[in-house]
Design a protein around this nucleic acid. Structure first.
Lengths: 224, 224
DNA sequence: CGCTATATATAACG
DNA sequence: CGTTATATATAGCG
């Protein structure tokens, strides 16, 4: 990324011309005797996407790629005006995050059906706002009337439980697109196949699947 | 945008013969008429990391890059055994997530210092476990003794408040490396350094819908 | 969506 | 951490 020149189209040979060509390349690449290839490095080698064993090497890779990932995220974020958040836990539980994680988490949780399910008997979709148009979980704890505190406690508990449940409910990866309904176990462990159709479909499309949509905090965007 | 600086092929390859030159270029290095070798495509063009205006184009880019991002994440996840979660909200609030988001969110929230700070007077670092080695916020709400319920409520409230605060406190990106206890701002600076104003609008006002609060707690690294 | 020509990301190696 | 040689990701287009 750190190119130094904003080269637009200029009158240059379309192909890379490199003044700093490698010696051996300048020579006739064809016939070669035992002249050793002075290639300074082997360059980027193809690697298999399997867990890197060497602790050390893995660490390095983690650093590099994490940075790369974040960079990509940043670009995507600005190119398309999207909000992106990334949370990463290294093996030692060190947290590396990117973006307004907190904000996104909140947004995510709100849109996630799980929370709704936790609601102590009530249909949020019906708009069961009590106070200032805020949903029960949005209200400050203090505002919860004493008589409802029991329910509130229960709700919180269930919420956490549900969350945890869902956690173990799936492992591998998951690429779920939006959720008018419940996150469907979908494609996960696909990319394990190879780095081919890693996350393939999943995009666009499953709007009325399960149909067990019980929550409706859906965004009001119409959209595009 | 389509534009084109059509003035592309006006120049001749100034280079001396590059042995590895593109075939079509090899054919006629000289001024050419309209012989069919128009290079099927212009190939990947360098783009500026600025918000893409054309709705259509942006959509395409979003799809492609999102996929790429997720793929990278998947690879990183496997290569180094790290847990990665990505949440993405498109402009229209469509959620695209990758990984065990729920799990990570939970983990994230638990490790967040904010929560610790929210503890009604207590130093978690000291290991103030009450019940089964669980921290107060890990215990089911029901397990909170009646006499502590007030404190508990208060704590929850503060927690929420802190979260909210932190949300607005920062924008753009942040790469915080977590610590067992309190977080410490760091890497972010470097990141930003390397990538100039890459990110800028990770967060736009989505304040129009009555409450975009989020969880966030402080960013205590006051020290730093 | 699939292609192609390039822009980028990075595995190896000081 | 900086370099180098390659493996990948993708912008532009049909």
């Amino acid at each position: 990324m750190e190119d130094g020149e904003a080269s637009t189209i200029t009158c240059l040979p379309t192909t890379k011309q490199n003044p700093l060509q490698n010696p051996n390349l300048l020579v006739n690449p064809k016939k070669e005797t035992k002249l050793k290839t002075p290639k300074s490095t082997k360059g980027r080698q193809k690697i298999e996407i399997k867990k890197i064993i060497l602790e050390n090497r893995r660490q390095v890779t983690f650093s590099k790629r994490r940075l790369g990932l974040f960079k990509k995220a940043a670009e995507l974020s600005v190119l398309c005006g999207a909000q992106i958040g990334i949370i990463t836990f290294s093996r030692v539980d060190r947290i590396y995050s990117f973006g307004n994680v907190d904000s996104l988490i909140d947004k995510y949780l709100r849109k996630t059906p799980v929370m709704l399910r936790s609601h102590p008997g009530g249909n949020v979709a019906n708009g069961e706002e009590d106070n200032d148009g805020l949903m029960w979980w949005e209200r400050a704890v203090e505002s919860v009337p004493e008589e409802d505190i029991e329910e509130y406690k229960k709700a919180l508990s269930v919420l956490r439980e549900n969350l945890l449940t869902r956690i173990y409910q799936m492992s591998g990866d998951r690429t779920v697109e939006n959720l008018p309904a419940f996150p469907n176990e979908m494609a996960m462990a696909d990319w394990k196949l190879t780095n081919e159709n890693l996350m393939a479909r999943n995009d666009r499309g499953y709007a009325g699947n399960g149909g067990d949509l019980e929550f409706a905090f859906m965004s009001q965007n119409g959209g595009q």
